[in-house]
Design a protein around this nucleic acid. Structure first.
Lengths: 187, 187
DNA sequence: GTCTATATTCAGATAGAC
DNA sequence: GTCTATCTGAATATAGAC
């Protein structure tokens, strides 16, 4: 058998993700990806229409990972409401730390072309919004959700970008600022 | 005179910035920049050692612009402390809106190579921290500063990235969440 | 200080044989 | 489904003449 099937969508995505995390978004080229898979570049185009399509799939995976992480955090905590929200924020941050390059691809550098299925974004958003609504009332739940998302996202991006140059306990800071944001809405 | 001086550092930076804002970071290539300046690519290398050096200067300009915008906002407001902090946050956001691509280059995609002089970052940080310290006390001023920065940065990046898909009055939301963060620290 | 000309490398993508 | 072979284009950067 000269050419048995050696790759499929999953193995491509997995390798692409690993390569991206190791060498940055720019380090992920079609040529290099093919080489890492032991295959020639044209083969990849039988599985993905374009590089953009591949990146879009990677972003979908990232969002699914975020949703799962938060879901798990939520259901392994039976504390009060503010604690549950904090637990989800922590899970989000941890996931971003574990996949910094993937997270950056999905949420900074945002090119419309690479935006994943909006359905996933809704899922992610609603999961948090439900609990926030309990805290601040349904009328304020959208701005409150956005404030929390902005806070968590901003913190993660700044710390991953090395912008907090004066050190300090960033884990503790994260908990403090999330708590402050929650408290600020409750009064 | 066959070859009079036609460009200098300032004109290069100005044109580079405009080109970047119009066509994105990837639209700014050395070749295209030279063409826009009516000059050939090699000429640029007499003014900047590399493309990275040029981008680093652009980032320094962005940070200087942020500092100036916040400084101006601060000194044209004589309200109480929370209002002053809000005014600075608003000025930061407006500046980012006016230079979205430059802002993105400076604060997302952060490659160490392109990081501007840390001195500017300190300036930017201290300006805010002084006022935050009055609000929360000096001991908490660093985490509080970081929380505010994360919130503002995160909000700006998400809105510029088109991630707030459900519409709404984002100006009002911004004021609300910044106020919530400030209130959360005051209790 | 700018030019012409070019080196070098790499990108994403495709045609057509097997 | 994978291959060989190749296209096309663009990128950053440099040597050396004027």
């Amino acid at each position: 058998m000269p050419h048995p099937a050696r790759i499929d969508r999953d193995s491509i995505l997995q390798t692409a993700r690993a390569m991206m995390e190791l060498e940055g978004v720019d380090g992920l080229s079609v040529n290099r990806l093919a080489a890492a898979l032991g295959v020639k570049p044209p083969s990849l185009y039988h599985h993905f229409a374009s590089k953009a399509a591949l990146l879009r799939e990677l972003n979908t995976t990232t969002n699914a990972g975020l949703v799962l992480a938060m879901h798990t955090a939520l259901h392994t905590t039976d504390a009060d409401l503010p604690q549950k929200i904090l637990a989800m924020a922590q899970a989000y941050r941890i996931y971003a730390h574990e996949h910094p390059v993937s997270y950056g691809l999905a949420y900074t550098n945002v090119v419309a072309e690479l935006r994943p299925d909006p359905e996933f974004l809704e899922k992610l958003a609603l999961m948090l919004q439900v609990h926030i609504a309990e805290l601040v009332g349904p009328g304020e739940s959208l701005p409150a959700l956005r404030g929390l998302w902005a806070l968590v996202h901003g913190f993660v991006v700044l710390e991953l970008g090395g912008q907090f140059q004066r050190g300090g306990d960033l884990d503790a800071t994260f908990d403090q600022i999330v708590t402050a944001q929650i408290n600020g809405w409750q009064r």
